Amino acid sequence: IHLPTAKRCIDLSSGEPPLKLAGQLVDDDLCLMMRDEDGRWRLMAASLHFPSHWSLGEKFGKSMAEIHTPVPAFVEEMDKRVARIFDNLRREQPVWRLNWSLHDEPGLHLPGPTGGPRFAGVEGASLLAKAFLRVERQTLTKLPETGAILFTIKTYQDPLPALLTHGGPDMVHDLHAGLSAMNADQLSYKGLTDARDRVLAAIAET
Rank of each mutant, 00 (worst) to 15 (best):
P94Y: 01
N88E: 14
S63G: 06
A120T: 12
E123C: 07
P51V: 03
G107C: 15
A131R: 02
A83Y: 09
P51C: 09
F50I: 05
A65L: 09
M78F: 12
H49N: 13
E105G: 08
F50S: 06
A120H: 09
G116I: 01
E76Q: 13
F86D: 00
R84M: 11
R134A: 04
P51M: 04
S101N: 12
S52L: 10
F86M: 07
P72L: 04
P70Q: 02
L56H: 03
M78H: 10
A45V: 08
G57Y: 05
M64L: 12
R81C: 13
R42A: 08
P51F: 00
P51Y: 04
G57S: 04
G115I: 06
R84G: 15
W100D: 11
H103G: 07
H53R: 07
M44F: 13
P106M: 06
R134V: 07
S52H: 09
S126K: 15
L133N: 01
D87Q: 07
A83C: 10
G116Y: 05
E105F: 09
R91A: 14
S55P: 00
M78G: 08
S55K: 00
G107E: 11
L110H: 00
A46G: 06
L102R: 00
S55R: 06
F86W: 03
P111S: 01
P72S: 05
F132V: 01
E76R: 11
H49M: 04
V95T: 12
R134C: 02
F60Y: 11
T114E: 11
V71G: 02
F74Y: 15
K130N: 06
T114W: 11
L98D: 10
R118S: 04
L43M: 09
P51H: 07
Q93R: 11
A83I: 07
P113K: 14
K130G: 05
T69I: 15
E123T: 10
R118H: 08
H109Q: 04
A73W: 08
F86P: 00
D79I: 08
S47F: 04
G115V: 03
K62Y: 02
S63Q: 03
W100N: 08
E76A: 12
L89I: 03
A120L: 08
T69W: 12
R97A: 09
E58M: 14
I85Y: 03
R91L: 15
S47M: 10
S47I: 07
L48D: 00
N99V: 14
A73C: 15
L56K: 08
L133Y: 06
N99P: 03
N99D: 11
M44Q: 15
P70L: 07
G112H: 10
G116N: 03
F74I: 02
G57E: 07
R90Y: 05
H68D: 02
K62W: 01
L127K: 00
S47H: 11
P70H: 05
H49E: 09
G121I: 05
D87G: 02
R134S: 05
R118K: 13
L108T: 03
H53M: 02
E76H: 06
P72I: 05
V122Y: 05
N88W: 13
R42D: 05
F86S: 01
K80T: 11
L127Y: 01
I67M: 03
V71S: 03
G121H: 13
P113A: 12
E76C: 09
